[in-house]
Design a protein around this nucleic acid. Sequence first.
RNA 1: GGCUCUGUAGCUCAACUGGAUAGAGCAUCGCACUACGGAUGCGAAGGUUAGGGGUUCGAAUCCCUUCAGAGUCACCA
Length: 589
Amino acid sequence: MLRIDQILSDAVLSGCTELFGASPDPSQVSIQLTRPEFEGERTVIVFPFTRLSKKNPEDTGKTIGEYLVANLEEITSFQIVKGFLNLSISDSYWISELNEAVSAGGLFGLQPAKSKPQVMVEYSSPNTNKPLHLGHLRNNFLGYSVSEILKAAGHDVVKVQIINDRGIHICKSMVAWLKFGKGETPESSGLKGDKLVGKYYVAFDKAYKAEVVEHGEDDAPILLEAREILHKWESGDEEVRALWDQMNGWVYAGFESTYKEMGVDFDKLYYESDTYLIGKSQVEKGLASGVFSQREDGSIWVDLTDKGLDEKLLLRKDGTAVYITQDIGTAILRFEDYPSLDRQVYTVGNEQEYHFKVLFEILGKLGFEQGERCHHLSYGMVELPDGKMKSREGTVVDADDILAEMRETAEAVAIEAGKLDSIPEEDRPELFKQVGYGALKYFLLRVDPKKSMMFDPKGSIDFIGNTGPYIQFNYVRSRSVLRNAGIERARYLIVESSVELDQTEKRLLMTALSLPDIIEESARLYDPSILANLCYEITKSYSSWYQDHPILKEENEDLRMARLAICSLCSSSVKTGMSLLGVNMPERM
RNA sequence: GGCUCUGUAGCUCAACUGGAUAGAGCAUCGCACUACGGAUGCGAAGGUUAGGGGUUCGAAUCCCUUCAGAGUCACCA
């Protein structure tokens, strides 16, 4: 919380006690930004206090306002509009905050590392039979960004994914490759490994559909072959395992290059093939301790009807695992791997909300009280203008294709704007990535995660308006001003407290100073969009202010310093905020 | 059918979690400016917050209800 808000909140509480003889509930004290059309910077809502004062809102506000002006040096005057007490805060207060923030340099907004509990964030977690697509982009950017935001808020963060490397889906690709592949490899075909394996998954599906006509869905020969391979895999057949290793290896190499391109990474990888058996023993333990129950046919269930959920199968009658069984195993393995882990955050689409409710309840029943702090970072589907985004229906937008398209568009736009002349040839590829991927990440992250969103391939690469490149562009301009000022280390700027700021720059300053609060809020809500919006707010205010507030040309030296400091604070705040979204900021563009 | 989520300007999204006249961007129209980086800034127009009811000083936000969309309720993953 900004220092002034704490001061105000305390003063309002003690003021009420002193003036009205009764103190309100602290939650009743609401302090907010004064709307721009009114004078002042902070507004206290007085309605809640009218019952204590036994006066009308205006008189109540006047009484409190007079008290605040008399008791707080930071408050210079107040105005009352209806039930709203608008407070003007002294310039010297803002300047001291400005000096403090500027002296923190790039650390402004960040909490000390590992000063808060350890959190694990899972994201990406693809199947290994298909390449990554548009939906994975939202998932990866979200998971990575939430991880970085939690770190910035002081948490110790472990980034992980669970790789679904086992199961019938992989076996389908394997069968098709054996039948039709003729030994094709990524090297021989020139295809990325994940694309190659995906190609055979599609080939399987095609052959399967052709066979269904004659043999029916359950008895198509190629499906029987895939099941046969699955059985061999489970019994450890060496040939099958070798092929499985080889094909998964191709996929991992393909994924790795896409992750690198996206700018995301992981601290530890979990593989389903390592964890899927662990769940079984946990379920049996739960059965022994009485939290689960067994039916006559031998299947094991958990009863969650008292939590408003249903009964859920945990182990089939033949003793084999279902989906949630392995998730129980994986979760518990992670708690064992990281004994001080406070909670896990799962970045998974909202179609699995029910699944995670059940999982967290089960973890609690098994004695892992962290279960109640675990969080499903649920996000909505990414839709396309001409219909739904569904990998099964063939309207997939391939992740690598999108990334390439963003790079190319960034280049085309830069050329058209005539911006390339001053950029050295060798720096250009990196610049196109920064701008193109910045546009994409910002586009996907500025929307509230839980809402489904529209991905407009054309609109996303607009470089004007509320976009990543707009923010980058203004950052670049502010950096240029600082370079021209010869300020290498802006953190040593000191602004005289006697400088007078106008309303516009005070507003801009306040916006930039809210970075720590917004990081904190984003972390608390697992929501990068709040931070994305702040970056845009700062940028828009900065750009507007910049238009008619000379910085280097300002003749009053104290004021020039103040404006340089504001410029520096805005650029560093935006850079920090954007970096937490995974967006790199260029120095020139 | 039960449960969950969503519905805000023509379009894409906000709204500090119950606060003032619901704000931005795109698109449309107009204005400024040869610039400390114009990939600019300013303005106009655009709204019964899906409809109806309720709670209170005050509702896009909370409750009820109707409508529309999505998801889920698998011995699939």
